[in-house]
Structure formats: C-alpha cells, structure tokens
C-alpha cells in the first residue's frame, strides 16, 4: 500500500484532567477527502491544532508524507505543504482580500528577505492571488478590506488563504460554520472541485455536506475514534448512531 498522506499514531493530548485527544490512530490516504465528525467538544479542533503544529501533543506521532513532523514548528509544517483553515475566522482584517491571499502566495514563494521591490505590484504574487480569489468566488471583492467582508465571504477568504499556499494536505476546520444554505452549497461545489488535487481532512457539522463529499469518515467522541469507514458504513454503524448521529441525519 502506498504511504498515507498523513498518519497519526497514538496521539494524545489532555488539558488538565480533560482528555481531548485519546491515543488516536488514523491514516489519511493520499487524494481522499477524509471527514471527521463528532459532537461539540469531541476534540476535532484540538486535533487540527496538533496536526498544524499549534499545539504540542502529550504523546504520539504525526507522520506527514512519510516524515515525522511531530516536533516541527507551524511554519515548517506549512512549508512542507500542510495548510489549515480556522473554525473561527482568522484572517488579516486590515488587509484587503487580495492582500491576504497574496501573502499566502508569498509564503510559498521562497524566503521574504526581499527588502526593496514593492510586493503590491509583483505579478508573481498578485497573479496567483487573483486566480485563487476567482476560483473561490471572491474576485469582485479583491480590494475590499477583510474586515468589511460579510461573514460568508470571510469564510471563503479563510479557505482561499489555505489554498494559495498550494498545499498537498488541507486541514479544513468547519469551513461551512455559520454559512447560509446557498453559501454552503457553493462551498460544497468548491471542495468537490478540489477533490483529487489535494488531500483534505474535513471537519464539518453539516452532515449533508459530509456525506456528499467524504470518501471516508471518522467519528470522534471524547478524543477517541470510535469508527472509520466509507459513508455508507458509518451510516449503518450502530455505535455511531448511538453516540452521535441523529436518525434524521442518517436518513437524509
């Protein structure tokens, strides 16, 4: 079998007495959309933070493309092709949408110890930024300050910034959080179009989206993976039904 895009081995993290990640083992196959679902407080965001390098696990390893990255810093992981988006929008509010994305493009365009030429008029950064904005559907809002974008647009920008670093692995923490029906629909279509080009770890509460997109689903409860499988397997798993999924979500 080919090396998994990401392997999580015995990952554990606790906050005081609270176990947020509990000896987690998981392999994300290259090219798949792997959804992680679970009730509030299951430890999904905590997991993403450990994968991205923002939180140190108490134990366990993270293997990315065959390489142990457990001890690497956040920027070092990003440089290897791992990008994340945030559940709670975390963009540069006093930068325009295009400047935000251009910065992401700059992050993968070599070092930034370039002191003299203006970055704003550098086609090597603006071109990819505009492309990603167009891809995500924010082209007309390119010159708007991120602070003045609507909530839905900020969520789109959040994804655009992750995409612009041309990652091989995308960690998306509830990309549809707080989005309206129509916006969610567009996001599903976008993620669908990314399928195959990036490996995606998708955390999402919107079950319609999860079952439409995911190749495989892992159910996380109290930091433990209680099941991993294809959408139909998860749908019919008794333990999952009990622990998490409401009947209506399953019948949808």
């Amino acid at each position: 079998m080919a090396e998994a895009a990401l392997r999580i081995e015995g990952l554990s993290k606790s906050f005081g007495g609270l176990v947020a990640t509990d000896n987690l083992h998981l392999a994300i196959e290259s090219g798949e959309i792997h959804a992680i679902i679970g009730p509030n407080g299951a430890g999904k965001t905590t997991l993403v933070a450990q994968l991205a390098g923002e939180l140190k696990p108490n134990a366990g390893q993270v293997i990315f493309a065959g390489r142990d990255i457990t001890r690497l810093t956040m920027p070092a992981r990003a440089a290897l092709g791992l990008a994340r988006s945030y559940q709670i929008t975390s963009v540069l509010l006093n930068f325009t949408a295009e400047d935000n994305v251009a910065l992401a493009a700059q992050a993968v365009a070599g070092h930034s110890f370039r002191f003299w030429r203006p970055a704003r008029s550098d086609p090597a950064l603006r071109q990819p930024a505009r492309e990603v904005l167009a891809q995500i559907g924010l082209a007309e809002r390119a010159d708007t300050l991120a602070a003045n974008l609507s909530h839905g647009e900020q969520r789109q920008l959040e994804i655009a910034m992750a995409l612009a670093t041309r990652p091989s692995l995308l960690l998306l923490d509830e990309p549809m959080a707080g989005m309206g029906r129509e916006e969610s629909g567009r996001m599903v279509a976008l993620l669908e179009s990314l399928k195959g080009r990036h490996t995606i770890l998708l955390i999402e509460h919107d079950m319609d989206a999860v079952f439409a997109l995911a190749d495989r689903i892992t159910v996380l409860v109290y930091g433990r993976a209680i099941a991993t499988g294809r959408p139909d397997e998860i749908r019919n798993n008794d333990e999952v039904r009990q622990a998490y999924l409401g009947e209506e979500a399953i019948d949808a």
């Binding site: 923002e54 810093t73 956040m74 990003a78 990008a83 975390s90 910065l103 910034m161």
Partner: peptide
C-alpha cells in the same frame, strides 16, 4: 498566528 500557519517563521 495566521502568518505562521501560512508558513512564515
């Protein structure tokens, strides 16, 4: 934090 997540040390 976001700058670091994008890959800037």
């Amino acid at each position: 934090r976001r700058m670091q997540a994008m890959g800037f040390p």
